[in-house]
């Protein structure tokens, strides 16, 4: 395990720019998650790091060595694909042993057996070793794929949405497993996803990608509490952050450039307007969503909509007039950039 640095990476496909000047250093033992929607360049960035694609500009350094021109095999990286991760003609054991048997490593078979069994224990698939790779459930397949990425203790393991093809329950289970395994091994990981929960729970640091650019990099807490712009603010949080016009809150002390006020659902204070005069605008309850564990209340303020969380036993009903109070609002200018209060 070692430090991996991406420096000024650029990649174009024809006329479209996939990666635009991305620099990122992943420290030894760090779990960095890149978060972004489809088409943000997440997979491209991983492929550049792996050597499956070549950057138009920029360098990839592993442990200080420039590997930009090296083929994937020479880089000491591993890759977990979103799908098709396992060699279908091989058993689970042979899949796990495959990297160790490569001409570059030539590990003795006894040593391979020991390592494979260790990894299988760690992944809790020891009883599946003799199965054909295709005779596993989706969750087991991805465990094996993750195992294959870790058997040879690479400088860095690259993972491309490894959990996205699994159903919600398995995804949650495996997410916890993955964090446990990463911590037990002290593995260095670069992981991309569009799932904010994975980013928040797995990462030591999160990078938010937008149209090939790294918009913000920080701990999950930093990204959530202090987003660099309205885009980053909108990537995290469920229901998403409410972005409301400055003019709705004439009494609020905000920096001069503020055009939009962002407020997380948990920072919206909603009270029945008739309960007494309060600062802030008055809106109308347009809908209450009962999700079981939580309720979402939709409030229309003039023409703008907000969503917040309310108690399951809220006395509020559709059509009620409510006053809106803000805690810890975030201010954004006309272009969406953060304005510090």
């Amino acid at each position: 395990m070692s430090e991996v640095a991406l420096k000024g990476l650029m990649k174009r496909f024809g006329a479209t720019s996939a990666i635009e000047d991305v620099s990122l250093t992943i420290g030894d033992g760090e779990f960095v998650v890149l978060l972004g929607p489809t088409g943000a360049g997440k997979t491209t960035l991983l492929r550049l790091a792996a050597g499956l694609d070549h950057p138009d500009a920029g360098r990839v350094l592993i442990d200080g060595h420039d590997v930009t021109q090296e083929p994937p095999a020479a880089r000491d990286v591993t890759f977990v694909f979103q799908q098709y991760s396992l060699y279908p003609h091989l058993s689970v054991y042979d899949n796990l042993a495959f990297p160790l048997r490569s001409p570059l490593r030539r590990t003795p078979e006894a040593e391979i057996r020991r390592i494979v069994h260790d990894v299988a224990d760690l992944l809790r698939i020891a009883d599946k070793l003799q199965n054909r790779a295709t005779h596993l459930s989706g969750g087991q397949m991805q465990r094996v794929a993750i195992g294959r990425a870790l058997v040879r203790r690479p400088a860095i393991a690259l993972m491309d949405e490894p959990l996205s093809s699994l159903d919600a329950k398995l995804r949650a289970d495996l997410r916890i497993e993955l964090k446990r395994i990463q911590q037990e091994l002290g593995a260095t990981l670069l992981y991309v996803t569009h799932d904010q929960t994975e980013a928040m729970t797995l990462a030591t640091r999160v990078g938010v990608l937008r149209e090939g650019r790294l918009v913000q990099l920080g701990t999950p807490r930093e990204i959530y509490e202090s987003p660099a712009d309205a885009y980053v603010a909108g990537r995290l949080g469920h229901p998403p952050i409410n972005l409301l016009s400055r003019r709705l809150f004439p009494d609020l002390a905000a920096p001069g450039a503020t055009a939009t006020i962002g407020v997380r659902t948990e920072h919206l204070e909603i009270a029945r307007a008739s309960d007494g005069p309060r600062a802030g605008p008055v809106g109308t309850v347009s809908w209450i969503e009962h999700l079981g564990d939580q309720n979402h209340i939709h409030v229309a303020i003039e023409n703008e909509k907000t969503v917040s969380l309310v108690d399951p036993d809220t006395p509020l009903a559709v059509g009620d007039l409510v006053s809106i109070g803000l805690r810890a609002p975030l201010f954004f200018d006309g272009k969406g950039a953060r304005v510090q209060a």
Binding site: S85, P103, R105
Partner: peptide, 15 residues
């Protein structure tokens, strides 16, 4: 045949 198989093998240390 998905090319991910070869790519995985190339990352795993094969030409």
């Amino acid at each position: 045949i998905p090319r991910e198989y070869e790519e995985a093998a190339m990352i795993d240390g094969y030409t």
